[in-house]
Design a binder for these strands. Sequence first.
DNA 1: CTCGGGATGTATCGGCTCGATACATCGACG
DNA 2: CGTCGATGTATCGAGCCGATACATCCCGAG
Lengths: 196, 196
Amino acid sequence: MASGQGRVLELAVLGSLHETPLHGYELRKRLNALLGMFRAFSYGSLYPCLRSLLAQGLIAEEQPAPSTIVGGRSKIVYKLTAEGKERLQELLTQAGPSAWEDESFGVHFAFFRHTEAEVRLRILEGRRSRLEERLDAVRTALARTRERLDSYTLELQRHGLESVEREVRWLNELIATERRASSEDRPERDTTSTDE
Amino acid sequence: MASGQGRVLELAVLGSLHETPLHGYELRKRLNALLGMFRAFSYGSLYPCLRSLLAQGLIAEEQPAPSTIVGGRSKIVYKLTAEGKERLQELLTQAGPSAWEDESFGVHFAFFRHTEAEVRLRILEGRRSRLEERLDAVRTALARTRERLDSYTLELQRHGLESVEREVRWLNELIATERRASSEDRPERDTTSTDE
DNA sequence: CTCGGGATGTATCGGCTCGATACATCGACG
DNA sequence: CGTCGATGTATCGAGCCGATACATCCCGAG
C-alpha cells in the first residue's frame, strides 16, 4: 500500500543514477542494455516514475552550464539527492517477496554489488523457494490431469519445467558461492554450519 | 487498435473452452496448470475478459438442469458459440508479432494442435528472430560499454544470454521437426530447399 | 448433530505498466 | 540547404495484476 511495493522502476532508476547522473533517454538505453534480456522498460512508465521521484525529492535536475543550452528545451539530467541515496540503501536492504518475483528479481540482482551479503543470500533463497513452489504447483496439477495431453502441450510443459529447473540449479551455485565467501570472512562459524 | 491485439487472454479462454465448457474458477486453474511456468492468470483480468467475450457473443452461459441449482447463485458455465469457434480459428491463423512476444508465445504454442502447420512454422521462426534480435541488441550494447562491470552484473548477463540462447536452440529443433514433418507430407519439395 | 475452516466460486477496484504516438532538436551527408 | 536518422521529452488509452470482499459447499473434529 505504501509507495514502494511493486515499484521495481524506482530501484532501477535510483540504482542507475547512483553510478552517474543521466537523462531519460540514456537511462532507458542503459536499463535496457542491463536487463533487456528479462524485460523492456518503456517511456510510458519511466517518465511518470521520474516525475514521482522528483516530487519526493529523491532525485534532482542537474543544471548544466547555461552556455551549453542553445535551443529552447535542453537535456534534463537527473542526479541522486542525499535522500535518494538513503532511499536506495533502504530498498537494497529489503528482502521481501517484492525482491524475488519474476520482474523484480533481475533488478535487485543487478545491484547486488551495493547489497549486504546477508540480504543477497535471503533474496537468492527466496527466489529459489518461489521457483520450487511453482514447480510443485505445476507438477501436481500435471499429475492430477486425467486426459491425455497433445505433444505440443507436453513439449511446452517439458521446456518450461526444464527452464525453471535450470534456474534453480543456477541459484544453487550462486548460494553456494555466497556461503563460501561469507564463511571465508568469518572462519569461526565454518565448522558449526556444515549441515548442507 | 482492433480488439485482439494484446489480448492473449482471449485466445487462452477461447482455446480452453474449445476443449470443454468450464466456469471461471476451473478456467483459471486450468490455465495456470497449462502455462503457470510462464505467467499467472488472475481474476482481475479473467472476468473482464469473460464479460467482453460474452458481450461479443463469442461465448455463452450454459444453463445446467435447474434441479442442480439449490442456493441463490449457481455456477456459471461458459461454452463456445459458433461465432467463438470462428474467432478462435481466426486467432489461430494469425502469425503476427502479437504471436511471438514473451507473454503471448506460450499461449499460442499451447494450442498448436489446432494450428495449421504453415502458421506454426511462421510463429516459431518469428519467435526465433525476435530472440536473436534481442541477443544482438544486448551483445552490441555490452560491447560498446566502456566501464568495467561488476561480477554480479556480468553473471546476470551471462545467465540471461545463455537462457535466450537455449531457447533459440529449442526453437531450432522444433522448426527442424516441423520441416521434416511437412516434407514427409510433400516429398516433392524436399530436395530443393536443403539450403540449411 | 453442529460448527468451523478450507476449498470452491464470482466479482471489483486501484494502480501500475506498456505500446503507440507526437513533437522538437541536432549532426552528417550529399 | 534540405532531409533523414538518431537523440530527446512527454502523454494517452487500454490492458493487466494483486488484493480484497463475499457467498457457498464439504467434511471431519468434538
